[in-house]
Amino acid sequence: MRNTWIICRKELDSYFVSWIAYVLLTLFAAAFGFFFWTLVTVFVVEGMEMQMRGQMYPMNLNEQIIRPLLMNVSVIGLFMIPLITMRLFAEEKRNGTIELLATSPIRDLEIIIGKWLAALILYSSLLLLTALNLAFLFRYGNPDWKPLAIAYLGLLLQAGALLAIGAFISTLTKNQIIAGAATFVVCLLLYVFGWVEGFETSTWAHVLAYTSVATHFDSFARGVIDSKDAIFYLTVIFLGLFFTARSMESLRWRS
């Protein structure tokens, strides 16, 4: 536990010392801000039009702004996650510092979980930025906070799963660009696999769609914790970290 925290602290330090964190925070804030602005503007315009026509349909901040907004966040996450994970192991391999970690009295699993945790904390700090914008909704409106909290939980779980996959890919190469690009493509595919269900109904399509991280996010976005979906994410996290551990071990046998 202590060792995991030492590794995690070191990773966080290097994220926040080397500007990676600030660049990601800025880019994320810019992208999120744009989505927030468009959704709020549409919402306001729609509301005014309805008032002018004298119609009074119920309008819902949660359904009309927060849900699509957090869906967008999970898409932005696709771009952020490879940038977060690509350096995790690839950089250690290139610097030769993997030899320091591997010859210290510390277990591989502690290294892996420490690194993954640091990546997750960095991602959480991106999510924290969104609170800044959402605070306005609470100030001027009255959204329900419970589905919002559940959606955030879903985002964290989804990110945790993709970060674990990214960590695994990062152990495969010394080259950060390769790690990042491969992670991006894998994340993207895992995101869009759900689409095949739209035109194909055979079993393989269902299986493929089930592996999609996006289909499992819907329930969270609606504000429902579906244990099936939560277990899916937890399984992917477990598998990702498991393969990372195996890959680190094989690194020793091969190198």
Binding site: D13, S14, G96, L100, T103
Partner: peptide
């Protein structure tokens, strides 16, 4: 065991004292 590999395993973005502290904690 204390081990110095052929290429010293240094993190370029760390300061010397910070690095030694990190390694000390690892050990």
């Amino acid at each position: 065991i204390g081990y110095l590999p052929e290429m010293p395993p240094l993190y370029p973005e760390m300061e010397t004292a910070e690095y030694l502290k990190f390694v000390g904690k690892l050990k």
